[in-house]
């Protein structure tokens, strides 16, 4: 079973304006750089994007925002992007802000076939407005629904031709849950190897969740806040 496509352009084939897509990463860590570039070049518009963050002004998701390709963002924290904040305050961009753990679990649930679940996060706040609530063990919880998307785009460290993925360090973050939640999941990897070369004990995302995989090129891996000790 060979899921390898040539590059990012081939990987996003069939994606259409108006669709929903997920993008892995936390800040700029573990983002699918190649596919973001291909999406910018594609000119697709009216997209709904599920991503924990919104990149920075000139990198990551910020590149798509700058070209007004995104209609709606579903995120937990968007603090490092001024263009995003401008579009939001001016009403050009729709934004759904979700507690980070709830977002992660909605993605996991989406991939795991669990339509809804209860969590305590956000009860009593504006996040809970209009949501069904219920008490369990003396504590109030909110009903939250699973999230899926037409496309999930994830970045892994290593992958094989069957779509098995291994993430590196904290570059895993949202990639693993999103890989499960896409109708079509695209994985771009730093190192693509033939099936059989990854240690099955170390696979994070089994290939069944991945439809297209390609070897990425020219990773910049920009650091958002480089902090060092003297």
């Amino acid at each position: 079973m060979n899921k390898v496509v040539k590059n990012a352009n081939e990987a996003i084939e069939g994606m259409q304006s108006g669709q929903t897509f997920m993008l892995g990463g936390f800040g700029l860590c573990g983002i699918p750089e190649n596919t973001i570039k291909a999406l910018v070049a594609s000119g697709l518009t009216n997209l709904t994007c599920i991503s924990n963050n919104a990149g920075v002004d000139d990198f990551g998701l910020g590149l798509l925002l700058r070209k007004h390709q995104i209609k709606k963002m579903i995120s937990s924290y968007v603090g490092e992007n001024k263009e995003f904040e401008r579009q939001l305050l001016s009403g050009e961009l729709e934004v759904d802000l979700i507690p980070q753990g709830t977002l992660a679990e909605r993605l996991r649930a989406g991939g795991a076939g669990i339509p809804a679940f209860y969590v305590p996060a956000g009860y009593g706040t504006e996040v809970g407005e209009g949501k069904e609530s219920r008490e369990f063990n003396g504590k109030m919880h909110l009903l939250e629904f699973a999230l899926t998307a037409d496309f999930a785009v994830v970045k892994a460290w290593k992958g094989d031709t069957m779509g098995n993925l291994v993430y590196r360090e904290t570059a895993n973050n949202f990639n693993q849950a999103m890989a499960m939640a896409g109708k079509i999941t695209i994985a771009e990897v730093e190192i693509l190897v033939p099936a059989g070369e990854l240690n099955p004990n170390e696979v994070h995302t089994p290939g069944i969740f991945v439809q297209r995989i390609f070897q990425g090129v020219d990773y910049e891996k920009r650091i958002e806040f480089e902090t060092v000790t003297e």
């Binding site: 936390f26 460290w157 360090e169 904290t170 891996k221 902090t227 060092v228 000790t229 003297e230």
Partner: peptide, 18 residues
């Protein structure tokens, strides 16, 4: 925090610091 020159872009905290 890492020593100067040893920051790893794949290894950050929730504040996005290396």
């Amino acid at each position: 925090f890492p020593k100067k020159g040893e920051a790893d872009p794949d290894l950050i905290n929730a504040g996005k610091q290396t």
